[in-house]
Design a protein around this nucleic acid. Structure first.
Lengths: 200, 200
DNA sequence: ACCTGAACACCGTTCAAGT
DNA sequence: ACCTGAACACCGTTCAAGT
């Protein structure tokens, strides 16, 4: 990669990244529906056609917004999972998951509601799959430590992810009361669920 | 209410209902983003301004679509809950919930993703609240029958709803494999979760 | 390569009238 | 009351050029 030329003729050394960053901000403030490619271009001082050099269409830009969100989410979960007690790691990663959703509600919605019903069926190579595989691995560590029942790890992972994803969606929809209380409700719920599964 | 005049000068005896029905169809086929008030009016043979007599804006129409979905969903859950065994009732209502989401994925998204971040904070008098209260009641019946732990019923309800809501979202996003398998995965997951909570 | 400006076919919403 | 038609200020996307 060549050094970024400063003050060159092009408006941005990295228009692509600038678009993604600005889109994340707009989504956070006005939701995915409030995102306009033309307005984004205006804000960045380029013509309204410039974004099409980097993204095929609006949907592609929103996918980049989603991908950036998944990267952050997965980082946080990996950090939380790095806990000597695997059950505590499971609980903390669940809490971290919901906390991310509460901090970035609109982006979280984009991450899971992006593709309405278009092309990709089997969702191969989805960033969400990476999160899921990490979850399965943690659960198997819990099982090896005898902390979870011997049910198929995939089933347990589906249940755990569903709880946490459901909590996140409900929290984002303000169904769990004020945000301050929501944090506590989440922690109580995740602990209740995991401790219930825990069959020592 | 006066009798509906047949064949009168107005194009529809009940334009409001016709709009909601047509919107549900369009949403099912093209998603919420594919819904256009102007196209809807064209399809129903009225001017593009006519819908504004019945709905303040597009969002209001989508809210009606959501409300219609909640009515059906709640009916199905009430039917499933009418089971002599309260635990079985809990399981079946969860399965019914996810089944509805799988049958009407786009409408289900509208039901829970409608309000991005606009006005209503505490979500008072939300149709979702009705579903939630029914769930709490069933859980308390389970507890009275000694089938569930003595944790606060609200916490248990949050966990149950989260599992089922999370499963529904994952299923709608095709994260649970092909639709045919998804049905089985859902049943296994709901049973695993509820039986785990079940502390006889 | 990357950007520009004009153009196309749409939107949601508002307004002033019509019956 | 309910509907109409013109108008406003936007969109996303495409095309033919510019440097």
């Amino acid at each position: 990669v060549p050094l970024r030329k400063k003050g060159d003729a092009y408006h941005h050394g990295d228009l692509r990244q600038a678009l993604v960053d600005a889109a994340i901000q707009v989504v956070a403030r006005h939701g995915a529906d409030g995102l306009s490619l033309r307005e984004l271009a205006r804000r960045l001082g380029v013509s309204h056609q410039a974004p099409y050099r980097h993204f095929a269409d609006k949907r592609a830009l929103l996918e980049a917004v989603a991908a950036a969100g998944f990267a952050v989410l997965f980082d946080r979960m990996r950090a939380a999972i790095r806990n000597p007690d695997p059950v505590a790691g499971l609980i903390e990663s669940g809490v971290a998951y919901v906390r991310f959703a509460l901090e970035h509600p609109a982006q979280y919605r984009v991450m899971f509601g992006a593709r309405e019903l278009p092309s990709g069926r089997p969702t191969e190579n989805d960033p969400g799959d990476t999160v899921f595989r990490g979850l399965v691995a943690t659960i198997e560590r819990c099982q090896q430590a005898g902390m979870l029942p011997a049910a198929p790890s995939r089933d347990l992972a589906v249940v755990c992810w569903s709880i946490v994803h459901g909590l996140a969606m409900l929290a984002v929809d303000d169904k769990l009361g004020p945000r301050a209380e929501a944090e506590l409700t989440v922690r109580r719920s995740v602990e209740l669920a995991v401790r219930s599964l825990d069959r020592r």
